[in-house]
Simulated scan of single mutants.
Amino acid sequence: MKKAWYSKFVFLLYIFLHSCSTTETAKAEEFLEGFLFQESGCYTLFGDKPITSMLIFRGKMEDSSLEDLSSEALKTLAFVDYKTAENFEAWKKVSKKLHMHNFFFVDIPLQNDPTCSSVYFVNIEETKKVFEEYFDLFHAKLKISNWEILLHELKKPNENLWNVLFSDHYLAGLLYGFGQENIETFCRKDKNRIFSESFEDVASKRNFPIPIYAISKKDKTSSKYREQREKIKKKYKSKRILEVTLQTLEK
């Protein structure tokens, strides 16, 4: 049965890749490399991280001018590669024929900033677990009667619901898989924050960080992600990022 499924997948992969240009395929793979390994999407794909997001700049190059920014704004500015939007569109085209049962992507415009959007990648089963375990917290914030409705609304997508959820640091932290003890530390706004990992390299399938977040002295989440990282490296070793990812999403 497994062999038959894999043969079907290889055939579908052949169709996918040959229905797209070489340029589109390369751009899709470039998007995946950044999303999976720099933004920690691989832990949502193969681990137990419920949701991963990525900020995408959708404006024109001239919209990204720094001339009008103050010195204070420049100090805190997060730079976003304007090519990411183009690469994401290529990924959508390459993956549009996939039948994803356990995952989904949504693209939500950023409130008050039309030049950007947030792409969210959702592991349905892991997100469901968070909703079930902490449903009282989600219900208090959203007034939604059960987790099935909540998940359905996210998948639509209900843009307002996404914005409300991820404007709440505590709920967002739960959905990002940062660990309750770490979220509580972050929400206390301690001045001397310690982070899960320091990583300044360009991430790749051979070398990438665990999800980066503020940690508490009782942090147990980071060791779990380190174990997952070693398993993920083996998944991609000597294989194309696009092939492994499509195969996993199709299951």
Rank of each mutant, 00 (worst) to 15 (best):
Arg226Asp: 01
Leu154Val: 03
Ser222Val: 02
Leu110Cys: 09
Ser70Arg: 02
Lys233Gln: 14
Arg188Leu: 07
Tyr82Thr: 06
Leu110Tyr: 03
Leu161Tyr: 09
Lys218Cys: 05
Lys218Phe: 09
Asn123Val: 03
Leu45Arg: 04
Ser71Asn: 09
Glu148Gln: 15
Lys156Trp: 12
Leu32Arg: 02
Cys187Glu: 15
Glu230Gln: 09
Ala85His: 10
Thr52Leu: 02
Thr44Gln: 08
Asp107Tyr: 10
Lys224Ile: 06
Val94Ser: 01
Leu137Pro: 02
Arg193Phe: 08
Trp91Pro: 00
Ile183Gln: 12
Glu148Met: 04
Phe166Pro: 07
Phe186Asp: 13
Val119Leu: 13
Met1Tyr: 08
Ser238Cys: 07
Ser216Gln: 03
Leu110Gly: 06
Lys155Ala: 14
Pro109Thr: 06
Val164Ser: 05
Ser118Cys: 02
His169Leu: 08
Asp68Val: 04
Tyr176Phe: 15
Leu55Glu: 07
His152Gly: 11
Phe199Ile: 04
Ile144Trp: 08
Ser222Trp: 03
Lys235Pro: 05
Asp48Asn: 12
Leu13Phe: 12
Lys231Arg: 11
Asp190Glu: 15
Asn158Gln: 09
Glu24Pro: 01
Asp63Gly: 02
His99Arg: 11
Ala203Gly: 03
Ile212Arg: 15
Thr25Val: 13
Lys251Tyr: 07
Asn160Pro: 00
His99Tyr: 04
Gly34His: 11
Cys116His: 14
Met54Cys: 10
Ser65Gly: 10
Ile212Glu: 15
Glu29Leu: 00
Pro114Asp: 13
Ala26Ser: 10
Ser65Ala: 08
Ser19Ile: 01
Gly179Asn: 13
Thr44Ser: 15
Ile51Leu: 07
Ala28His: 01
Phe186Thr: 05
Thr44Asp: 13
Ser198Pro: 01
Ile232Arg: 11
Ser196Asn: 02
Glu159Ala: 05
Leu142Ile: 05
Asn160Gly: 06
Tyr176Thr: 01
Leu165Ala: 08
Lys224Phe: 09
Phe138Met: 04
Pro157Glu: 11
Tyr176Ala: 04
Arg58Phe: 03
Lys155Leu: 09
Tyr236Phe: 15
Val244Gly: 05
Ser65Tyr: 11
